[in-house]
């Protein structure tokens, strides 16, 4: 496969998977965002910062429509971006991945990245609907979240390299090592400093839908890139010399 073709299928897979993610979010996450922003509006009226007037609602509707329409576009941008990372890791690890075809290999890698880069960091720093976060702490929270994702991803690679040096039945030790290490990091890292004032039902339901959305992305990219790769690499065997 040529470099240019490789880049094109990686970006296309990411954009498609991101489109699916954005569409799923539009359907299942947006209702919770609306609820959370509704609470915010109530707080604004009660504190006197805004007036419950027709003008307010006209402006609000325009603003929310703009934000909602962004959900799908942002899904495509984020999908292309994370897809690029997925493509790099897949190209570098394809030979080592278990599975007898490219779709299985790609899905397995998507599962590993979903777990190490999303689910484990999510357990420490779960997604929150609007009104929960404090604008003053957003930089700190971004640093904590990104650091935890990076630590998890890099240590997963490190323990994988270690497993290659270990003999057959000791390979599992590397997996245990990752588990112990990331658990330690989990307890050492500071908590999200913000206090949740929104109703917990809303927060938990929002988080559940958010996980479904991101999971739809990782499942899609695993399948789509695997299918592209299988289709194009079988042709490659013919013209590859």
């Amino acid at each position: 496969m040529k470099s240019s073709l490789f880049i094109v299928i990686v970006l296309l897979s990411g954009a498609f998977a991101g489109l699916i993610h954005g569409t799923v979010n539009f359907a299942i996450v947006e209702p919770y965002l609306d609820q959370a922003i509704g609470i915010e509006n109530q707080n604004l009226f009660e504190s006197g910062a805004e007036e419950d007037s027709p003008e307010f609602w006209v402006e609000y509707e325009g603003y929310r429509t703009w934000q909602k329409s962004g959900q799908i576009l942002a899904g495509v941008i984020l999908g292309t971006s994370v897809g690029a990372l997925f493509g790099i890791v897949f190209a570098l690890s394809r030979n080592a991945l278990p599975g007898n075809n490219d779709v299985k290999k790609s899905l397995i890698l998507a599962g590993v990245m979903w777990l190490t880069l999303y689910i484990i960091p999510f357990l420490k720093y779960p997604a929150n609907p609007p009104t929960v976060g404090d604008g003053e702490t957003v930089v700190l929270r971004s640093i904590l979240y990104l650091s935890f994702i990076a630590i998890s991803g890099i240590s997963a690679i490190g323990f994988y390299q270690l497993s290659k040096k270990l003999k057959n039945n000791k390979k599992l030790l590397a997996l245990v090592g990752y588990g112990v290490f990331i658990s330690a990091v989990f307890f050492v890292m500071p908590e999200n400093p913000d206090e949740i004032t929104a109703p917990m039902d809303l927060v938990y339901e929002f988080r559940f839908m958010s996980v479904l959305g991101v999971t739809s992305f990782w499942a899609s990219i695993g399948i789509i890139l695997g299918l592209f790769w299988r289709k194009l690499s079988s042709q490659k065997e013919i013209d590859y010399s």
Binding site: Q67, S69, G70, G75, M209, S210
Partner: peptide, 16 residues
Amino acid sequence: HELTHDMRHAAGFPCH
């Protein structure tokens, strides 16, 4: 920010 705002919340990035 406004255009990517909803995805930011939905995908778990820190926001408001």
